[in-house]
Write a protein that binds this DNA or RNA. Structure first.
Lengths: 227, 227
DNA sequence: ACCTGAACACCGTTCAAGT
DNA sequence: ACCTGAACACCGTTCAAGT
């Protein structure tokens, strides 16, 4: 019972090359970053760790736990201590951090959406939630407000990830989006989709990060309404 | 070249039991609804259509196209014609429609997040976008505003889906969430996660649908700020 | 043109056997 | 306690062969 939990306090590892959950997670992140979600198989992971596929199961219950641990590792680094700033700036900073993390590790976006009450998502919820007092939001509305921020961030994260997955690498994101937009407008007529056609035009001079933060600002403005 | 497209105008089908993309999509939706995402395999689908696995590939390029078509079929029915109402009510109605569709077909939530520029998502974008003029949003902000709404809806959708996937059916959603919250609070101390602990308490007397719509209201309030 | 179904190239996961 | 690696039970997809 003693050493079972996920505490893993640095007691003193014998050999540096021994397998551990941490090493496995790091190797998984490296594969995910370099070659994408579809490249992460237990066989590839075992090969990169110079071990057998079954060995991994001694440290990790299954693939889902592995992906969760990988996503948590990336997000946890990012969300911590923005508590010093003014409320709106802190919210922006947390959101930017999550955005940048997903930009650097696109697979994280998809993973966050698959684990609802899991560490990474709760970390983000906590980060946003602690700022709401500073915006003067009454306690009864705080949960709704924090949820709205989290759901918006997760939805945006999913969009980035989906975009990254389809983009035949080499194209810049804006250029890629412009191409998608062109294809879409060619296939759907402007009469039934007037708004989407106007949006597609704007897409060319558009920056994902700015649009993401514009959404955060809209939410903060809406939240400031609750008093 | 003539009959290739996805037009499929009702010319006159010969035998009612012939395979078609529409029949395949309907069968897929039935399996997804009844047994969940993991139950949809080409073998199971072929069996339910009383045909061979390879036959499906004559009508559908691959599994991803099948899932997209299924999600589009569910969403398209829902988003159409809310155009008569006042802007804020119309936005609420569209959001409610999407929420209810995902509530009834949880697999749709995950699928919407995997197809960025695809029909269903664009349909939702269009629905929201057309209401923004009525809120007095200047054209240059309309794309950001509509995107924020869509991303929020998609993020929420992902959360519902993830919840539904984990929920060992039989429990009501509120009861299930309460159980998740209890488990989470037991494992994380209130000192480092003060907000999440308060949120977990509120979770017991909480309604998903209401919280979702509260987020929509926050967004609408924020969007009305743009002038 | 449309359908069949065996075959291919993979997966995640298990488990007897080793050290 | 930890690791090995073959084996199991699946997948999505292809394709020669049928009608």
């Amino acid at each position: 019972m003693a050493g079972t939990g996920r505490g893993e306090q640095g007691g003193g590892e014998r050999r540096t090359d021994a397998l551990s959950k941490e090493r496995i997670v790091d190797a998984a992140i490296a594969i995910l970053d370099a070659q994408g979600e579809s490249a992460l198989t237990f066989r590839a992971l075992a090969a990169s760790l110079a071990t057998g596929a079954g060995a991994i199961y001694w440290h990790v219950a299954n693939k889902n736990e592995l992906l969760q641990a990988a996503a948590d590792a990336v997000i946890t680094r990012v969300v911590s201590d923005e508590s010093t700033r003014e409320a709106p700036a802190a919210i922006r900073a947390i959101a930017s951090g999550v955005f940048d993390a997903i930009d650097a590790h696109p697979w994280v976006g998809g993973q966050l959406l698959r684990e609802p009450g899991q560490s990474a998502v709760m970390e983000i919820l906590e980060g946003f939630g602690e700022q709401l007092e500073g915006l003067g939001v009454p306690e009864r509305d705080q949960f709704n407000a924090a949820s709205a921020l989290v759901n918006y961030v997760l939805g945006s994260a999913g969009q980035f990830t989906a975009g990254a997955r389809i983009n035949p690498e080499g194209l810049g994101r804006t250029e890629f989006l412009a191409r998608v937009a062109t294809r879409w407008t060619e296939r759907h007529d402007a009469a039934t989709y007037p708004f989407a056609h106007r949006a597609a035009a704007q897409l060319r001079e558009h920056d994902d990060r700015e649009q993401f933060l514009a959404g955060i600002d809209i939410l903060v403005a809406g939240i400031s309404t609750l008093r």
